[in-house]
Design a protein around this nucleic acid. Structure first.
Lengths: 255, 255
DNA sequence: ATAATAGTGTCTTTTAGACAATATGTA
DNA sequence: TACATATTGTCTAAAAGACACTATTAT
């Protein structure tokens, strides 16, 4: 706790940083991993006006009971989704990341099925929000974003890719019901590498996180068995990673 | 970003939460995993006066360039250690965790060798700090701590235990140079279960994160080869976990 | 020599990966 | 039937676990 001589000002008198929450929202669209970005408002006193940014903003101490509630609210506002897979990524704070002053953001990431989304187009009354739009993740990594959002996005992607090596996370990107081949394609898109079919199926079925839900015909060929997730709130952990993994699963943010 | 009608108050006029950083500092002492706690100051306006708490406190926007710097400062103040293994655990924020108002803490955890520590005894001039003291982790989990620090400690311990399944993390708890049997005992203490000697040695040596540094005689029996870490800033990842792991490595805080 | 601890070798088990083979739908 | 895709089976490879065995020090 802060150093204070005997009759100092109360700790709560310290200058307070700005506190925000940002959410990296992933989905699978057109066989590619996409992230939701919003356009920053165009006002004179707004930093990074007109630039693309992650959905997020200040914690509302009147209405947000917790950081998680705040993240859920922002996600609901932009996508209409109330029960996403949502996980905290970490926090980033520094004197320089926001031109308005010392600022700390609490960053979450979410995985949602594209079909469930009703995009906030931005023409609404409670604006401040420009258009929300899906962006291809790899393309976005080569783009300048507002604030340090490029760093947040890169960290979220690293976390996702790392966890895909040993969890069932990509299942949350799919609409239900889905087939095993579709799930495999999702894994392959996220990992950006092919996976052996037989090994993949053994792994998923042994994981016991799905239950059968009829069959789904494809465009051609034999229809596939359809599945639903048993629990959309938590990923299943596999006993081993797919292969020698590279990045640290749990290490998050730096500054 | 926040909803605002055209001529609203600037975003920076929002009421700001309190922002703190807390650090869970682990070491190995007397063959047990220990955590550093400090006594809360005894002042009328201080919440949780006299109770034990994690080292931490408000971000100092004048002196802390980043959250990480803030965590390093607090760790240095309490232990004298400037270059620990330090990793962010996550953040917790809510309207109720601090009686003084809406508060968010950024929690880090550190692993340090006991011998390197020079404990801040609390009698110093820059007080506010009561005594700092090592506590057995398992005992502490059955104790009431200030704020939600019990939750933070439990999360840090869960993160540590989970990462021990597939990383070289426990090596950071040891003084250098250390022996392989000592490292194995450290793993066993953290995991609270025995590990097979042969498998353990293969794993560590294959990991290539140590270099030989002479031999160290034990109390009895054959002396053991001594090792130093090649890189004290980063843990090594093993290709597979020790066994079927239980807890989610990367999932952190909730609210 | 004996006790104690360090270090090695061998066998088994598990599961991923490669890849061939079979099954089932549609045109 | 031909084709495309789903699903299964068999073999191999890599690494962890179990556990017996050897090595090196002090007394």
């Amino acid at each position: 706790m802060p150093k204070m001589p005997t009759a100092a000002p109360a700790a709560t008198d310290f200058p307070r940083p700005l506190v925000t929450v940002d959410v990296v929202i992933f989905t699978l669209l057109h066989d590619s991993l996409q992230v939701l970005l919003v356009r920053r408002p165009d006002a004179a006193d707004e930093p990074f006006a007109q630039q693309w940014a992650l959905p997020g903003g200040f914690v509302d101490v009147q209405h947000d009971a917790t950081l998680l509630d705040c993240a859920l609210r922002k996600l609901r506002d932009k996508t209409g989704i109330a029960t996403p897979y949502l996980e905290q990524l970490g926090s980033w704070g520094s004197a320089t990341r926001d031109p308005r002053g010392w600022s700390a953001t609490h960053c979450f990431y979410a995985l949602i099925p594209a079909a469930a989304v009703r995009l906030e187009t931005g023409a609404s009354a409670n604006a401040g929000a420009g258009a929300a739009q899906w962006w291809d993740v790899d393309a976005t990594l080569n783009t300048a974003l507002a604030f340090d959002h490029h760093t947040l996005l890169a960290a979220a992607l690293a976390r996702l890719r790392s966890k895909v090596e040993y969890t069932s996370l990509p299942a949350f990107l799919l609409d239900e019901p889905f087939t095993l081949p579709a799930l495999q394609r999702t894994f392959e898109v996220v990992l950006a590498r092919p996976i052996d079919k037989s090994a993949f199926r053994k792994r998923m079925l042994d994981g016991q996180f799905m239950q059968e839900a009829g069959v789904l015909p494809g465009a051609q060929g034999r229809p596939a068995v359809a599945y639903r997730l048993r629990d959309r709130s938590q990923a299943t952990l596999f006993p081993r990673p797919f292969a020698a993994h590279g990045a640290d699963p749990a290490t998050g943010p730096g500054a």
